[in-house]
Write a protein that binds this DNA or RNA. Structure first.
Lengths: 329, 329
DNA sequence: ATGAAAGCGCTAACAA
DNA sequence: TTGTTAGCGCTTTCAT
């Protein structure tokens, strides 16, 4: 910028004015400055700018489990779109759902003075984040509510979604319904399990612990769990898979075993229609978008009490949960 | 940091020493400083640090078409992993394959003084980037080579992959093979088309322009193209789909029309095995990883001539390209 | 309409 | 072992 000023034969401040399109610069002068800027290929240093200016690095942070998981990728895309329309860029980090990684990531983001944070929290307490919030960091929680502090969040109605999935299976004649999910320490899984159990109870059916497999972390683990279930003396006749990873694993296992069990998965996924998989799902795009809106409102000065936005998942019947196997249209 | 110094009763520089774990601080002093840091919840301002220190904001930028596309998401994940193991974070931006958006994104990243850039370039000339490169910005191109400048790149052998896909179909008795892809202005598509044409020619078959549909940008467009092809007087008996989006569209259209055409797609995708889709694909994870390695080597001072790394795609036969429809294992 | 000086939070270079 | 000074590139405040 100093170089630009020198070439244009003006002071540093005048260049700053031109760059920021402030008023009070004679057109002729501005012209000269612009020419110098082009000649040098000058780009304002945003780091220096936000250092001086105090707040506003025009950068927001997003912490998710894994960008390679389409559910998270959709969230990331929605947040990015909102951010860019407001002139901000997005730093995305994958925590692998591990608390220590999440904490490290948040640290790296805060150290770079992001204006705000969107976080899909890993299991565990987040009291340590309360400290940051108290210090003025704006955080919005996605998919799972914060544990140990009050803050904005956008979540799905997981209990309702789980109940709907299982009711659907029951309505189609399935009786022994298994549930496959990640560890119940993950908030969403616990809630979906609660919905599962509630639906069974209201139908007067027992909640058989042998049919609950809440430990697999990935598709392979889910497939293994299904194989085990199939060897039970009284195997299940249907499965409720708690998220997209689980559903993929269940599909593989069922196909390999040529076992025509009923199936409803939580979360939609590409090609689910071709595979005829019935799902209960909410919109990741909407979750990311609403979360970003919430965050930018806070950054804009909104200081109303923390809000929790609950999105309702919907059931999409495609054949796998309806007993009579239908060819998808 | 000044506050920390005050509370600990030391000078600013001493705090800096402790924060950077430089030598020459008495343990007792360091202890006091650490206590003050904890008390205040102090975090070093990385922006100020890199402003002073000149280079190294420990941030790299990645420009891709769309994070929500699993192919790009895999690249992003691989880059992120490499970046973090080196203490850097990743700013990811989606260009939607539009040149103007790409340019805007690169501008936003450069303005934030990222240490380096990984770019999957949209179609068009990139001479404007040459200017930046000349100025010392490190850029590595992914998936498509740069046009209009010399720089490191990691690409697939697209011609070879396209040829292999079509040879495979020919070997299994298909004769009229259509090709569906994005616009040939996209480098990868043009190359894959060349491979397609080469395979036909070496088999002594004509390259029928009516069977080439190189205009759809998304899955829906690809599906439309297939529907059109099926109404031809002499419809194709097989399709080569040029990327994962196209393959998805083709699958939908073929399934809807109950048309058992042969199909080989470029790029692998989740559940392709369950759908029995034969693909030719390279590893997005390897592409991202190798690209990141290249970039970090440059950032580390490597100034050898620009390199181009070519990854070979492999063919995975799953049924859709082998005439005799096989149940996947 | 333009410029000079101070300072954002930090580190490099040099004292003490 | 510790502190002082200067300055990274910019914006703010106050002059001119």
């Amino acid at each position: 910028m100093r170089d630009v000023a020198e070439i244009a034969g003006v002071s540093l401040k005048t260049v700053s004015r031109v760059v920021n399109t402030e008023a009070g610069v004679r057109p002729a002068t501005a012209e000269r400055v612009d020419a110098a800027i082009r000649q040098l290929g000058f780009r304002r240093n945003e780091l220096a700018r936000s250092l001086r200016h105090g707040r506003a690095s025009a950068t927001v942070g997003l912490v998710i489990g894994d960008v390679a998981n389409p559910f998270y990728a959709s969230i990331a895309r929605a947040v990015e779109t909102r951010a860019r329309s407001g002139g901000s860029v997005l730093i995305t980090g994958s925590s692998d759902e591990v608390g220590s990684q999440e904490r490290e990531l948040v640290g790296m983001l805060l150290t770079r003075r992001v204006d705000g944070l969107l976080v899909v929290p890993a299991a565990g307490d987040h009291g340590w984040l309360a400290e940051e919030v108290r210090r003025g960091v704006h955080i919005v929680f996605l998919d799972r509510p914060p544990h140990g502090l009050v803050a904005d969040s956008v979540v799905f109605d997981n209990v309702g979604g789980g109940r709907r999935a299982v009711r659907h299976l029951l309505a189609h004649g399935y009786q022994r319904i298994a549930i496959i999910g990640d560890a119940p320490s993950v908030h969403t899984i616990r809630e979906r399990y609660d919905g599962y159990a509630a639906a069974l109870k209201e139908a007067g059916l027992p909640v058989d612990p042998r049919l609950a497999r809440l430990s697999p972390h990935d598709a392979e683990g889910a497939a293994r769990a299904v194989r085990e279930l199939l060897t039970l003396p009284e195997p299940p006749d249907a499965v409720f898979a708690c998220n997209n990873r689980m559903t993929v694993g269940v599909l593989h296992a069922l196909r390999a075993a040529r076992a025509p069990l009923g199936l409803v998965g939580f979360d939609d996924f590409e090609l689910a229609d071709l595979l005829g998989v019935t799902v209960v799902s909410g919109s990741a795009v909407e979750m990311g978008g609403r979360g970003a809106d919430l965050l930018f409102a806070r950054l804009g000065g909104d200081d109303r009490p923390a809000r929790r936005i609950v999105l309702s998942p919907t059931l999409v019947a495609r054949g796998s949960g309806e007993r009579v196997s239908e060819e998808p249209a």
